[in-house]
């Protein structure tokens, strides 16, 4: 479903950014030759520290960024050549992308449904389903800027799934949520997996990755240093749990960079 081949993404830095990041090079490799694939009915987890390049990879998949080199296909469509088709089949959630605070969850849901070319009846059906699941009905007519963080996140998730996409890409979906809300989100991701969707999530929470993901790719400094099932990773690194495995790899690869 999602096929990333040798993805490299290079950002050009301005002088100001160079000073901020204390580097003398005017380019930054946010993603360095990354290849991975996520299949139908599978949750793939991208695990890495802040700034490792997880969001860059996901943004490339979501057609918001174009790869510098390499290629990405989603449901057989190239993200650069057929971005429109790709966008039809994906849901992309990240905390920098927000819903218009002036509107209610219901208005936003209907608005994005129509932008996806759905008819009103289908939109109503999807809305009932998703709003009931996430418990949005109680605050569906309130303005989004009056909602709590958890409510906002639930609304964002529901809206991002309005068109029942085949591929779901969630960037740190449980960030800032209490455990009850976080649990309902991860449970829904499992449900999506059972429905046969391909799901990619990024996270820096080890326990979440352990419990949720069928396969995990570990990204450090823009490079995918290992991927596989949890047991494969533990076996390879000779560790007991994911956190230890991650630190083994982190010690090894962040040294290389320095």
């Amino acid at each position: 479903m999602i096929e990333i081949k040798n993805l490299t993404k290079v950002y050009k830095l301005t002088k100001k950014q160079m000073a901020e990041q204390k580097t003398k090079r005017n380019i930054k490799k946010a993603a360095d030759n990354i290849s991975l694939s996520a299949k139908k009915g599978e949750i793939y987890g991208l695990l890495g520290p802040n700034g490792a390049g997880k969001t860059t990879v996901l943004r490339c998949v979501a057609t918001l960024l174009n790869p510098t080199t390499g290629e990405i296909t989603v449901c057989g469509c190239d993200t650069v050549k057929e971005p429109k088709k790709v966008r039809e089949s994906i849901s992309f959630l990240t905390n920098e992308i927000k819903l218009d605070p002036q509107f209610s969850p219901k208005y936003m849901f209907n608005f994005f449904g129509r932008l996806h070319g759905m008819d009103d009846k289908t939109i109503d059906e999807r809305r009932e389903l998703l709003f009931n699941y996430f418990g949005i009905q109680d605050f569906r007519d309130k303005k989004i800027n009056e909602l709590s963080t958890g409510m906002k996140q639930k609304a964002s998730i529901a809206v991002s799934l309005v068109h029942d996409p085949e591929v779901v890409i969630f960037d740190e979906p449980t960030n800032g949520l209490d455990i009850v809300t976080a649990r309902s989100v991860t449970d829904y991701l499992k449900l999506l997996k059972e429905e046969g969707k391909a799901v990619i999530v990024s996270t820096h929470i080890m326990s979440e990755a352990e419990k949720l993901c069928d396969r995990i790719g570990i990204i450090i400094n823009g490079r995918k240093v290992m991927d596989g099932t949890l047991s494969e990773i533990l076996k390879e690194t000779g560790t007991e749990d994911l956190e230890d495995a991650f630190f083994e790899l982190y010690k090894e690869y962040s040294k290389e960079e320095a």
């Binding site: 979501a62 057609t63 918001l64 429109k84 088709k85 966008r87 039809e88 994906i90 992309f92 920098e96 992308i97 927000k98 819903l99 218009d100 605070p101 994005f112 932008l115 996806h116 070319g117 809206v159």
Partner: peptide, 17 residues
């Protein structure tokens, strides 16, 4: 304003031209 609030990107994610 929409760019700054992060609401523009959600529109760029739709299949709209």
């Amino acid at each position: 304003g929409e760019k700054e609030r992060g609401t523009m990107a959600s529109m760029l994610l739709t299949p709209l031209n």
